[in-house]
Design a protein around this nucleic acid. Structure first.
Lengths: 217, 217
DNA sequence: ACCTGAACACCGTTCAAGT
DNA sequence: ACCTGAACACCGTTCAAGT
């Protein structure tokens, strides 16, 4: 009669597996995520998962698409740059919350959520009355920035870990007297209070540049 | 007396292991790279590798650093934007030649080559007489673009594979009538002859934006 | 229809034994 | 000092058997 009893139906279904897998990857990283461990958290045998999911690849593809589904789509009304900023910031927030997702983004074919997401970005750029060439390049530039910058942020977080200061200081002393510019840069990292506006700073570089390029042509 | 003979010294050393590992990852991807397979290509037992390398993690860290060592550093003389463009293009070329490297870039602490590379970028930005805040943000923007854009290019290449057209057409017919903007974008991909200047287009957006931001402040 | 244990073909790495 | 096979604790997944 308890949770581990074989007769107690576990309501094992696709969404529940997806939820548990995402939570596990959030907590321990996707490289530690194992079919056996997911099954363990669901109190079922590892092979039971395969009644609902073709294989681990498919599970990961669906996990990514579920995460993409959480991103706020740009509002088609009003100023396109403001809408794009809001959506990009939402994407950045979501990706930081699921730090494994950024590594899967460019490896997998888009699922339904990502397809919708792509369409919404392209729709917003078209709405902005940019010409075709700028929309084409702009789409790549914007999505590149969203996942690339998030990945860089996450990468630094992972490399430095919770004992941030200690590792950075260690790296600094390894540098010795050489590499003065790098030492200066690392020290700036240690002093900096907030990084969140840096994502938007670079995004604006791109958005403003696109607008300017469109006016020139 | 042949290569597989145990008495024939294999000159098994760190650089040789690194070379073979990089070639293997280039050919089959890092996810298929195995200590046992590397050993196989070196005609030695899997455990022999551990006499020269602490573990697979360390090997991957060194592989990435070796790849970074191939990137042309920006020339400190002359126009900073031209120098940065040349170096970024070199990085893009190197990363496309070692498509696994881009996934490791943000996961590992910099080795000696990457340390030198970071220093050279920061030196070039300082040489450009940009102010401290712009150098700080600009460094992140430029490196983000170099690895982020390369990763996006590689990701599309991997997803679509050699039978590029076929898969894209399949995706298009899956889209059906919905997602008109996305369908248009995918068709533009199919028509486009060259993508190599798109990397520079976005880089210039960033470089010009940095210069403009520096003048404003 | 759904679940599952045993088994297979792999991993990275430890260890004790070889030379 | 360098090499290595056996072994350990894992993987993802197949398959045949259960309900």
């Amino acid at each position: 009669m308890n949770a581990r009893s074989p007769n107690k139906r576990q309501f094992l279904d696709r969404p529940r597996i997806l939820d548990v897998a995402i939570s596990f990857a959030d907590a321990h990283g996707v490289e530690d995520m194992t079919m056996r461990k997911i099954a363990g958290e669901l109190n079922c045998g590892a092979m039971s998962l395969y009644n609902h999911v073709a294989n681990k690849e498919e599970l990961l593809t669906d996990m990514l698409d579920a995460v993409v589904g959480k991103i706020d789509t740009p509002d088609i009304e009003g100023d396109w740059k403001i809408a794009m900023r809001a959506s990009a910031q939402s994407a950045n927030r979501v990706l930081l919350n699921h730090h494994w997702a950024v590594g899967e983004w460019n490896l997998r074919m888009p699922g339904p959520n990502r397809t919708r997401y792509m369409e919404s970005i392209l729709a917003a750029l078209t709405q902005a009355k940019l010409n075709d060439a700028i929309i084409y390049r702009g789409y790549h530039a914007i999505t590149m920035h969203i996942v690339g910058f998030s990945q860089q942020q996450i990468g630094y977080q992972k490399m430095l870990g919770p004992n941030f200061h200690e590792i950075a200081e260690g790296f600094l002393s390894e540098l010795g007297g050489n590499y003065p510019y790098l030492a200066y840069h690392v020290r700036a990292h240690l002093d900096e209070p907030e990084e969140c506006d840096e994502f938007l700073f670079v995004l604006d570089l791109i958005l403003d540049g696109l607008e300017r390029a469109a006016q020139c042509s």
